[in-house]
Amino acid sequence: MLLLPEEKAALSLRELYSSFGYKFYRMSRFEEYDFYADKKDFLISKSVLTFTDINGRLMALRPDVTLSIIRHVKDTDLISKFFYDEKVYRVPKNAKSFREIPQTGIEYIGKLSVDGLSEVIELAMLSLKKIADGRKYILDVADAGMISKLLEDFRDSHKRSEILKCLSGKNIHGLKSLNAPEKLIRLAELGGNIDKDINELDGSLTVSVLKNLKNYHNEMRIDFSAVSNLNYYNGIVFRGFIQGIPESILSGGQYDNMMSMMGHKNAGAAGFAVYLGLMERIS
């Protein structure tokens, strides 16, 4: 077989997504820089690789796929389902230069129902299963909206980001010394039996989605260290891990916030990305 493991995985993911009715989305490698300039809060890496086009316009090599896809969606009353298999250009954390990073994933855009969101999470589980190829895998699920709400009264952005850092590091002693809300500390401690932990979640969409996915509970945990960018995500968020790969290989969530920032006021959207480049790190 001439295909590398990550190429094989990419093909089987494409097959999976199209069998669920997702349409392949092909896009240009670059966009005008202006498009990203005012959306820095939504980008994982703040650095954007730019060059000047022959007509003098400043262009950017795409640092993110989701923004480009949303931009091309016109009608959010209908449900649009896309998958992509692209390269993005970012400076990974602690790296000293840009890297080309392969990214495969889906976007579900339009009115979000329990069924729609459940489908996204189900596809995340099926993607992990395919890539794991017999290894163990786990999807951490949390609700970013609950955290935003709990931090509403924290106006001090420095302290807010300290609390979020402790949350992502399961740093309970740190949260206590920052006087984080009791409820937030309880959420940070979750990560055991999902059917017990689910009682800590508010009667949100996330609860209905999780109840809808009982068949997958063995490989799912409620774990609030999955909460990352609160500017980007507003509801369910998740992160997938595969045994033998030292970092999360899949991440995603519900991002209505970004939809409204892009001019779609009452629209919902959810999606995830799989970083197949990490497959070469399997030990």
Partner: peptide, 8 residues
């Protein structure tokens, strides 16, 4: 702890 190791 490594995040992935802590899961498995």
């Amino acid at each position: 702890a490594n995040k992935s190791a802590y899961k498995f």
